[in-house]
């Protein structure tokens, strides 16, 4: 028996001949099957899990490596840190809500068009680019539009004689505008599949039973879409909360947002005793984002229960 197990477990035995390649062998869950997954796990362990552990453990250590809670004390008492968290949370919340509403409407407009049309594919591809690969480049897009020499700024100055200088763009308000710019297309991409899942038959059935548009949306369409909408909103929230590139490009001085604050801490590890505060802030971000993602995953599971 022992011999059988070890034989089947070795990869060479699995590939030995017809006898071991039949249905029986393919259902056999030997340790050998798991061996094949080792490279993946080692890699992810080394470059994802280990960094996360370094952050987690480091945030409980002082620079000498002994256990301390001082980093967290600093995080919760220093107004600068609290302010950064609050700014990031606000920015994320506002742009997520704006993006979800506007992007949701845009998605609705796209869904009503031809499902195989070239226009739809163009919009989706464009949204994919703007939502996920923008970062620094989107900041430059806005400099070119609303910046000191931007298209709109120049237009207002030269043609309407307005005293526009574009400096608002380089503030948190400007950042909110730029963030919303990538939240809208992200919403479209995330929400479109749920809208595609709405069936004409549901609307027709509701109408034949005496329901108008309002009854349908209130009783059927709304409840079906609600979980996906909420899930998308959460995804947008974490997206904005985690963003660094755009913020850094728009507001390059200072440590306004929490992501920038962490970068500042990282680059100024000279301040004695503060070396690991950045790690505590990073852990704080992990906690917030993970909590939101957990809610997101739960909602997604509920949403997919109804709409297959």
């Amino acid at each position: 028996m022992t011999q059988l197990v070890t034989r089947s477990a070795s990869p060479s035995a699995t590939a030995a001949g017809p006898a071991s390649s039949g249905a029986g062998a393919s259902r056999f869950r030997g340790a050998g099957n798991y061996l094949a997954l080792i490279p993946f796990h080692v890699y992810v362990g080394l470059f994802l899990v280990l960094p996360t552990l370094i952050v987690t453990i480091g945030s409980f250590q002082d620079q000498a490596g002994s256990l301390t809670l001082d980093n967290f004390k600093a995080m919760f008492t220093n107004e600068q840190f609290i302010g950064s968290f609050m700014k990031s949370l606000q920015l994320a919340l506002i742009t997520a809500i704006l993006g979800a509403i506007v992007g949701g409407l845009l998605a609705w407009a796209v869904v009503r068009g031809n499902p195989n049309g070239i226009l739809r594919q163009l919009v989706i591809a464009a949204c994919g680019v703007l939502a996920q690969f923008g970062g620094v480049m989107l900041a430059f897009a806005f400099f070119a539009t609303f910046g000191f020499n931007g298209l709109i700024t120049m237009f207002l100055k030269n043609n309407l004689g307005m005293a526009a200088d574009g400096s608002w763009l380089y503030s948190l308000a400007g950042l909110a505008v730029v963030y919303t710019y990538f939240q809208i297309p992200l919403m479209l991409i995330v929400f479109l599949p749920s809208l595609d899942g709405l069936r004409q038959e549901w609307y027709d059935a509701s109408a034949s039973l005496g329901g108008g548009a309002w009854s349908f949306w209130r009783n059927v369409g709304g409840p079906i879409l609600a979980p996906s909408f909420l899930g998308a909103l959460l995804l947008l929230f974490t997206n904005a909360f985690s963003a660094y590139a755009t913020a850094q490009a728009v507001i390059s001085q200072g440590c306004a947002l929490i992501t920038q604050q962490i970068a500042c801490q990282m680059q100024s590890e000279v301040i004695l005793g503060q070396e690991n505060v950045g790690k505590a802030l990073a852990l704080g971000m992990i906690v917030i984002v993970s909590a939101v993602m957990a809610v997101y995953a739960y909602i997604q599971r509920r949403a997919s229960r109804w709409v297959k």
Binding site: E201, W202, D204, W306
Partner: peptide, 12 residues
């Protein structure tokens, strides 16, 4: 009263 081919029940 209309009965459709399939999938017309409100899933929620």
């Amino acid at each position: 009263g209309i009965v459709f081919q399939a999938y017309s029940l409100f899933p929620n």
